[in-house]
Design a protein around this nucleic acid. Structure first.
Lengths: 192, 192, 192, 192
DNA sequence: AATGAATGAGGATTCATTCAT
DNA sequence: GATGAATGAATCCTCATTCAT
């Protein structure tokens, strides 16, 4: 029973299903059929809307990135000083909307996907660029030339915590946040 | 051209080929045939020696872990003070034997494999436990109760750098080492 | 050329093809591809509808059994006295619908399959139980306590004739029927 | 450690192992490797002695037939009258040496093999011919022209009991013998 | 819009067979 | 005589993708 205006609903359902399936499988070895079934549609429809499996995956990656960006933006909106802004970025990174097992699993898998997919690599570069520029922008005033290295450390620490904590059964966003905030303190206090 | 005592040679060749293929593909979507071909044998032989694809993958993971362990051990052998030991562990982590694109790619893929394979999860746990205990052992004297969190940060930073730098075309082990050593300084100097 | 409601048609075609292939090969060493090709579909479709080779085989066995059962039922419908009923069961066993080379070959192969497949064993048990109870029910009035042994003999004779005559190029159902009817006479006349 | 005069020992061991494996698997889907392993030799040796898998199978079939023949011969040696001879043949058919689960399973499988192997068909024909002529020879004096049909019935009954009883976990040769002897009585008493 | 039918390529795995030693 | 190394063909099965309806 085809209906009008179903497209955005179907796309969203399929993207959610994709992330859920990846989270469930722990890998990108996910079949279009399973994704479609979880979304409550036929596999044919998934192709109809997205074109192919790769496009579904990319769309899901884009979605994860968008949610993350929005989280960062909304956190940043309430920050005023550089220090607050930095902490906002960190907190956003481990906010519940991102730091759920399924999402993290999908996210890490997309990280790897970037090794074999140009489009995924491009998306990943955008994420990295944004995180880096966010950190850098607010570290430069305090740290000057040592800001890039410090930003790199914080960024890597965040990614590392995704890898280490995000993949566990019950990731603790607050604990992860605390770890990074402490590292941030170190970076900002211990100036060269 | 059957010869005697080929088993260890074949196994080593197949494991190397596995890592190379994973590195090349950037994922675990690697066929046994390709691995075998790269190792210069038939796919049947790969099964003969390992039993199945999963076993090949696990054997490769075990190999990566073993190489890493040996690198750490050999670095630790030349260290005396706790600080030297900590730096040794860090340096070992980014030593050329581990920090090659292929190896890092394989390593990160194994990290993910642990999400869907119990055996891989077990191996990963061993790695994590060892790294953690190495760091902890030499941080405790200086940091006391805040050692665990500090160790966690350093470990996550290392993993994050694997993810961020190791997957690039030409990973720079020295740069990564420098980043962690600085973080280590922060941790050790800025005591609570 | 996808159409709707093809499932029952495909299933039937695949089951027929399975029996024909088994008959042709004389063994269960039949590939799914050949079955599918004979049925005019791809091998993928065979899996799609049945799940796997074993399921195809079992479905074919079930089909053979069902055809047999229906033959017996339709023969029994026209019988009134115990003697007529017994003869009806015998005649049904060698009716053309069952006693065709392909079918008999498949049947005997299924007999053996029961040695290695629990599900096949279960199906076989049903067949045996039914044949036995049919014979027993109509022998008991005449033979009393010696009915079970007599029924066993008739049942074994039927199976033996399947083995001996059914596997020949041109099985003669009438001859086989005559042999069993004579044995039946012996059983019923020569009472203890 | 090659030794001299091992051939007959190896051949016998391999044939025994073949029958055991077929009995165990319940089908001819038995690998040469398993047969060889059970016989305590390498798979290469099995080929060396027999040429190929088919030859191993046929050798095993021949062996089963030979054992059966010898059993019949030895039973016949002690019989004098036609009736005794007939009973001797029946008893031989269910003697422990033939009527063991493994052997019966192999035997029935060989029966089927005859459908796809000319050589197996030839061997089977020999068995049938011998059984038939044994029965016929001693029935003709009593039954005259109806001897062939009677012999056919007894032979089919024997085969049917192989199929029905021989494949069960604990075949009861005595029970099977009793069933056939009773049928034999019927045949001989109830003359036309 | 949506489905289910259908395909076919690709991959893991098994195994008979061969051969150097 | 005997082994184990090695191959490659064969087979089951999965799955992305296409298409008529």
């Amino acid at each position: 029973m085809p209906k009008l205006g179903m497209e955005p609903i179907r796309r969203a359902a399929l993207i959610d299903a994709t992330i859920a399936e990846i989270g469930h499988a722990g890998s990108l070895d996910v079949t279009v059929s399973r994704i479609a079934k979880r979304a409550g549609v036929s596999s044919g429809l998934a192709h109809h809307y997205f074109g192919g499996k790769d496009d579904i995956l990319l769309a899901a990656m884009r979605h994860v990135l968008r949610v993350y960006s929005e989280e960062v933006r909304s956190h940043l909106a309430q920050a005023t000083t550089p220090g607050e802004r930095l902490r906002a970025v960190v907190r956003a990174s481990f906010a519940p909307s991102n730091f759920q097992p399924h999402t993290v699993s999908a996210w890490v898998n997309f990280y790897l996907l970037a090794l074999s997919s140009d489009q995924a690599a491009r998306l990943l570069r955008v994420y990295r660029g944004r995180l880096r520029s966010n950190l850098l922008h607010d570290m430069r005033p305090t740290l000057g030339d040592s800001a890039p290295a410090a930003a790199e450390r914080i960024a890597a620490l965040i990614d590392g915590l995704y890898l280490r904590h995000g993949l566990s059964d019950a990731p603790d966003g607050d604990a992860a946040t605390a770890l990074v905030l402490t590292a941030l303190d170190h970076e900002l206090k211990v100036q060269p």
